[in-house]
């Protein structure tokens, strides 16, 4: 069965080529010794990468994005852990609608979230736009992702382990730190990593809510209009793609290790 070469196998390989193909042109052209992203390739070079590090405004944007992404991933995970615990361990009245409400940012177009936050920040609260307002917007969209990951994890292991700990005389707090949290750890780590990636790559909300300082995607977007900046943009894009891919692989591998869940939805 595994080795059977049929239409479906060919389709699967073509599918993967389709979703990866266009993106892989970016690293290809970033190593090409030319200002244009065109065939035929002119020759191998690393100079676009070297030039990138000399670019002060780009490095500032990288730093801003890193700062925001770290804060966002820590805060959204810190908020999502107790919330997921509450929704999986207690029969809360109205639990279903609450989960539904908290998942809303997944289906609201991000431009609506962005303008809604823009309106309340500028017209109602009168706060200046800054990197902090971007971070606030990012926390909002990261919480549903963190909760999905954590709730799947918390539902995936046997609650009798926690009951045993309580029966043996541990307080709720001790049980949490010595039983629940270590078991939920893979979920926590992947929630941290995914939150980091979402925030680091997010463009629309950052574009609307940032003040004078750029995040990396906003900077990248401003560079896309200049054809002569293309190689630098490609080099930067390549590094971002590689970084995100590595983080996603780590997050997914950690999440799948350990307690096996019988639920195929927990992927």
């Amino acid at each position: 069965m595994w080795k059977r070469l049929d239409g479906l196998w060919i389709y699967a390989v073509a599918f993967i080529a389709f979703i990866y193909g266009p993106v892989l042109l970016m690293p290809l052209f970033s190593l090409n010794d030319s200002t244009f992203a065109t065939f035929p390739l002119a020759g191998f070079t690393l100079r676009h990468y070297g030039e990138m590090f000399q670019n002060q405004s780009m490095m500032a944007a990288v730093l801003n994005s890193l700062k925001i992404a770290v804060i966002v991933s820590l805060l959204s995970t810190a908020l999502a852990v107790p919330a997921s615990l509450a929704l999986t361990r207690y029969k809360l009245p109205g639990g279903g609608p609450i989960v539904g409400f908290m998942m809303l940012p997944l289906v609201i177009p991000s431009i609506v979230i962005a303008v809604a936050l823009l309106v309340i920040i500028l017209k109602f609260l009168g706060i200046q736009l800054s990197l902090w307002t971007v971070a606030a917007g990012h926390i909002l969209i990261c919480i549903p992702f963190s909760m999905t990951v954590l709730m799947a994890r918390l539902e995936g292991f046997d609650p009798s382990l926690e009951e045993a700990s309580r029966d043996l005389g541990c307080s709720g707090w001790t049980t949490f730190w010595r039983v629940t949290f270590p078991l939920a750890m893979p979920g926590v780590i992947s929630s941290l990593l995914l939150g980091f990636i979402i925030s680091f790559d997010e463009f629309v909300i950052a574009f609307f809510l940032t003040g004078t300082e750029n995040t990396l995607p906003v900077y990248l977007y401003s560079q896309l209009r200049f054809p002569n900046k293309l190689p630098g943009t490609l080099a930067l894009g390549t590094l971002i793609l590689c970084g995100s891919a590595i983080l996603v692989i780590i997050a997914e591998v950690i999440r799948k290790r350990g307690v096996q869940s019988g639920n195929p939805g927990d992927i």
């Binding site: 266009p22 993106v23 042109l25 970016m26 052209f29 992203a37 995914l194 990636i197 979402i198 790559d201 463009f203 995607p217 990248l220 977007y221 896309l224 943009t233 490609l234 894009g237 971002i240 793609l241 995100s244 891919a245 983080l247 996603v248």
Partner: peptide
């Protein structure tokens, strides 16, 4: 999970 902006941009290159 990789940047939506970059995936869209890659089509501009294509």
């Amino acid at each position: 999970w990789t940047s939506y902006l970059l995936r869209v941009f890659s089509w501009k290159i294509v």
